[in-house]
Amino acid sequence: MAENYGIKVSKSGNDVKTATADNIIMTSARNCLKVNNVVEDTISVNGSGYGTKTIFHGLDFVPFVIAIVDSSDNWGSFDGYYLVPFAVVWDWSVYSYLKITSVSFTLDLYALNNPNTNYKFYYFISETESAT
């Protein structure tokens, strides 16, 4: 680490004055990924297995989002928590897109034969801009 100012916290066993960047837990010289609390929401898919939900985040920049869809008891042998985006090999997909005003999540599950089902999903929206 070149800068000798601000707040730096190193990993256990590393000298904070000489630690390399990957051994620093936190430094005020670098922006952190600041996130609000987790938000739980629901997407309802229709008779064709399609559903979408848009959240207006109220920020004036494109944020960073990590989301996961809870299908812990809907998809049989594929029960689990799926990172967004997800669309492996079973002809269904979970995806999102971001705007400066909103983030939208979509489930397109036509091949899973679970129409008219409500799915919980969880997401973080950052207070850090995704990039300048």
Binding site: M26, A29, N31, L33, K34, V35, N36, E127, T128
Partner: peptide
């Protein structure tokens, strides 16, 4: 502004 803060205890960090 929030985007000019490298850290704030208002928010969580991963």
């Amino acid at each position: 502004d929030p985007t000019d803060l490298t850290y704030s205890s208002k928010w969580s960090n991963f």
